[in-house]
Amino acid sequence: MHNLRKLLRQIQFEQRAFWRNPASAVFTFVFPVIILVVLGNVNSHAHFRVGAHSYTYDDYLAPAMSAYGIISATFVSLAMILSIRRDSGVLKRFQGTPLGSTMFIVSILISSLINVIIMMVLTIGLGMISLGVHFPANMLETVAIMLFGAVCFAGLGVAMAAFIPNSDAAPAIVNGIFFPIAFISGIFFPISSTSILGRIGNFFPISHYSTAVFDAYNPIGTAPSVAGSDVLILAVWGLVGILFAIRRFKWEPSRR
């Protein structure tokens, strides 16, 4: 009982800390929403083909923006928060309490999954309201694949924090990695998987995630079902991230 109360309090703390930091809340949520609404409305008449099927740009963009938003709420957000807290000494202070590192990490992961769920509702809802995109054809599969990716990218976010030398460098490093890869992974516009950019993008987990989300979301009901290879590649990246996070995560600022 005591542990459950501890966990709930710590999640509550994480939620407060997140929403009361305008920079993190705005960057995480407002950005994907603006891209979704602006790009979606500007290009709403564009069509393109995937395999034998024809899609509108909006059908493509809505699931991609869900994927983008979820990565933003996990990978980007965790890497930033953890490196900033580590650098300021907040993590060290937590480490000195009986809270326990497992409890701390579990709480911040659950808190970012809460943000992921808000992001899912927001992007799917806005896609429907603002762009007229259909409700996901297979809701259960969509939610499952979205959450699965969220866990993988959360692991990668914690691992990323171990690479960031100090909090000043955090935004540049995290966004410097995230944006270019998101772009070549076809998050904003479709990129042919046989092109050079597409091939580079395919090495990273983002393109596989957005493809899997698109296939599950299947806004017009004719997309192929989720490919096992996409899920597998995502899982491998996630596992590497989680293992790396466990081995290399640091609690103290590196000043020595």
Partner: peptide, 24 residues
């Protein structure tokens, strides 16, 4: 513990922070 550098989560109120730590 009081560490050499004081580092508190900036967004919380004093009461929220103390209640959080008390729960540990």
């Amino acid at each position: 513990l009081v560490l050499q550098e004081c580092a508190l989560p900036p967004g919380l109120t004093v009461m929220e922070l103390l209640t959080l730590y008390a729960s540990y």
